[in-house]
Each structure stands twice: as structure tokens, then as C-alpha cells.
């Protein structure tokens, strides 16, 4: 346990000392939120909720995707390339400590990212914060999202041959899914059916829908595809992706590029 905490500590130290990664990981979703919120801020949907509030809620899904999926995937590719994993493999440290350390990093970053986005929502776009029962729902949606995205990040990192390309490769699914999952474009009813079907396979749509439940008024459910929040389906899809992610991780995990 101490070893895992020590890994988490070192991961955080390294992350916060690398100022470039810090700024890009944190500032990017917040910047997009400011832009989208400002450009479309005066528009109100049929439920009478301003676009800036919808963006704030949905953009948390992007924030988590960025801190969990991209940070995990790129971080692992980098650790594989710069010798971090090889170094640790040669010590008695258990693999689990490495992964728990990464998980602590990802959890801390995702919380901070979410807090930053909410801060923008509250301060700039006058979004009211929800009551306690909604925060409870937020907790499980947030945790399932972080776990699913992190595990998928680990799995996808196995496809990355060169750490310098990791950011670019990981951002392809991230950006594509933003557009079709109701993060950049909501309501999703504007999308062709087949694109909705594709989006519904992946976790991002359900993450965004869940976060909208948490942060938007009940009446906004009329803007969802099913006309309701479908929290059961949110839990189911995210839970399945956690399992799929775990299986993919176990199948694809490599200590190094030369681990043949």
C-alpha cells in the first residue's frame, strides 16, 4: 500500500513539474468551454436551459476523457519509452503499485479538471450547483467514467509505437467522439441515426448524458434522445466498458517495446 502511495506521489510530482503538460491537459477543455459557452451562450433550448450550461455539463465528459484516457494512454507510452517501466520491472515493486499510482494521478487530475470546468460554469455562465442527491449520482458516474477511460487508455497505449505520437493518436477517438456524443453538439437528435448508433456504443455519450442529469434542471431531459436521463443505461454501458477495458488491458499490457 505504501508503495502504491509512493508511486502516486511521484506521479503527481512529475506531472505538476512538467508545466507544458499541466497547461495543455487542464486549460484545453476549459478554453473550449469558454469559447463554446461565449459563442452560443445566449441560445436557449426548448427546455429553456442556456447553451452555456449545457456545454458546462457535457464538457465534463471531455474533461474526464482528457485527464483519464489521454493522460493514462500517453503517460504509459512515455513510461514504456523512457525506461520508467523497465526500471520498475527490475525492482521488487508489484505491477499493481504502478497501476494504482497512475490511477491516483488520473483521479486527482480528473477531479481538478472537473472542478475547473465547474468553476468556469459557475463564475462565467451563472450555472447553479445541484443538491446533495445529484452529487451522489455524480460520484458514481464520475468514478465509472474515470475507470473506464483509464483502462481504455492503458489498452490503447499498446498500439502506440512511439511516445511522441501518443497525443495525436489518442486524440483521434477523443475528438471524433466529442462531436457525435452530445458534447459539442447537443441535442443529439440533430445527428443522423447511424451516427447516433455508433456514438451509443462508446462511453462518452453516456458520460455526457449522466453529467447533464447532474447539473441541468429536470426539465432538460426533454432534450435527450429518449426524452429521459436513462441513468440505468448510463450505469450499464459504463460498467460494461470498465470490464471490456480491464480485459483489453490484461491482454495487451507490455512492460516494454522489446518485451517479446
Amino acid at each position: 500500500m505504501n508503495t502504491s502511495l509512493s508511486r502516486g506521489h511521484v506521479e503527481l510530482l512529475q506531472f505538476f513539474r512538467d508545466k507544458t503538460a499541466l497547461v495543455f491537459t487542464f486549460a484545453f477543455p476549459a478554453m473550449l468551454l469558454l469559447l463554446f459557452g461565449t459563442i452560443f451562450g445566449d441560445q436557449y433550448n426548448d427546455a429553456g436551459v442556456s447553451a452555456s450550461r449545457v456545454f458546462t455539463a457535457s464538457m465534463i465528459a471531455y474533461g474526464v476523457l482528457n485527464t483519464a484516457f489521454v493522460t493514462m494512454g500517453a503517460g504509459l507510452a512515455m513510461d514504456r519509452e523512457d525506461g520508467t517501466l523497465k526500471r520498475l520491472r527490475g525492482t521488487p515493486m508489484p505491477v499493481s503499485a504502478y497501476l494504482v499510482g497512475k490511477a491516483l494521478l488520473v483521479l486527482a487530475l480528473s477531479l481538478a479538471e472537473t472542478a475547473l470546468l465547474l468553476l468556469v460554469g459557475v463564475l462565467v455562465f451563472d450555472m447553479p450547483l445541484p443538491d446533495a442527491s445529484h452529487w451522489l449520482t455524480f460520484t458514481w458516474i464520475f468514478l465509472l467514467s474515470v475507470i473506464a477511460c483509464s483502462l481504455l487508455g492503458v489498452a490503447v497505449s499498446a498500439l502506440v509505437r512511439n511516445a511522441r505520437n501518443a497525443g495525436a493518436i489518442l486524440n483521434v477517438p477523443v475528438v471524433a467522439l466529442q462531436f457525435i456524443s452530445g458534447v459539442f453538439i447537443q441535442p443529439m437528435s440533430q445527428l443522423p441515426d447511424w451516427l447516433v448508433n455508433v456514438a451509443s456504443i462508446f462511453p462518452v455519450r453516456w458520460m455526457a448524458q449522466g453529467f447533464r442529469y447532474v447539473f441541468l434542471p429536470e426539465s432538460a431531459s426533454s432534450q435527450e434522445l429518449a426524452g429521459s436521463w436513462e441513468l440505468g443505461k448510463v450505469a450499464l454501458v459504463l460498467g460494461v466498458w470498465c470490464v471490456v477495458g480491464l480485459v483489453l488491458c490484461l491482454m495487451t499490457f507490455r512492460w516494454s517495446d522489446s518485451d517479446r
Partner: peptide
């Protein structure tokens, strides 16, 4: 190791204490 470039943002002492802890 022959060609490690890890832990670039840690200090010498931090990294040695960290690995020693294993």
C-alpha cells in the same frame, strides 16, 4: 540500465528515496 531517461522531473534524492522504498 543502459539507456534510461526516466524520472527527468524528479531530483536525484527524490528518485533514489522512491526506488529505495521498494
Amino acid at each position: 540500465l543502459q539507456d534510461a531517461a526516466d524520472a527527468a522531473d524528479l531530483t536525484v534524492r527524490e528518485m533514489i528515496r522512491h526506488v529505495g522504498g521498494f
